[in-house]
Simulated assay, not measured.
Amino acid sequence: MKKFDKNKVILGIAAPLLAIVAALVITSIIIAATGKDPFHAYEVMVDFGSKADSQVWIINKATPYYLSALAVAIGFRMNLFNIGVDGQYRIAAFFAAAVGGALTLPGIIQIPVIIIVAMLVGALWAGIAGLLKTTRGVSEVISTIMLNAIGASVIAYFLKDGRLAVKEGNLVHTPYLPDSAHFFEIPTTPKPIYGFVIIAVLAGIAYWFVLGRTRFGFDLRTVGQSESAAQASGVSVKRMVITAMLLSGAMAGLVGMPTLLGVSYNYGTDFPAGIGFTGIAIALLGRNHPIGMVAGALLWGFLDRTGTQLEFEGYAQEIVGVIQGVIVLCVVIAYELVRRYGLKMQQRKVGEELAAQARKSDKAEVSA
Rank of each mutant, 00 (worst) to 15 (best):
K3T: 10
D5L: 04
A14Q: 03
L17P: 06
L17N: 08
A23E: 10
A23M: 10
V25P: 00
V25L: 03
I29K: 01
G35S: 14
H40C: 00
A41K: 03
Y42Q: 01
V46L: 12
K51M: 04
D53E: 08
I58C: 02
I59P: 02
T63G: 01
Y65C: 00
Y65H: 00
L70R: 09
L80V: 09
G84W: 06
D86G: 09
I91C: 05
A93R: 05
G101I: 15
L103V: 09
T104H: 08
L105S: 08
I109W: 08
I109L: 07
Q110R: 03
Q110E: 11
P112S: 04
I114Y: 02
I114H: 00
L120V: 09
A126V: 04
A126S: 14
G130M: 08
T134I: 14
G137T: 10
I142D: 01
I145W: 12
N148Q: 06
I155R: 04
A156D: 09
A156T: 03
F158T: 03
D161R: 02
V166Y: 01
N170H: 02
H173F: 02
H173T: 05
T174H: 04
F184D: 00
F184I: 05
E185N: 02
T189D: 03
P190Y: 05
K191T: 14
P192M: 00
I193Y: 07
F196E: 00
I198W: 02
I199D: 08
G204P: 08
A206K: 07
W208E: 09
F209I: 13
V210G: 02
A230F: 15
A230L: 13
Q231Y: 15
G234C: 03
V237L: 08
V237F: 11
T243C: 06
M245T: 14
S248N: 13
G249A: 10
A252E: 11
G256M: 10
G256A: 08
L261D: 08
L261I: 03
Y265L: 00
D270A: 07
A273T: 09
I275R: 15
I275E: 07
G276I: 04
F277K: 06
T278H: 05
I280F: 13
A281W: 12
L285F: 15
P290E: 10
G292M: 07
G296M: 06
A297I: 11
D304T: 05
F312I: 00
G314T: 12
G314W: 14
Q317I: 13
V322C: 04
I327Q: 05
C330Y: 12
C330R: 10
A334Y: 15
Y335W: 13
Y335S: 01
V338N: 11
Y341W: 14
V350A: 08
V350Y: 11
G351V: 13
G351R: 14
Q357Y: 15
K360Q: 11
S361C: 07
A364N: 11
E365K: 13
V366E: 15
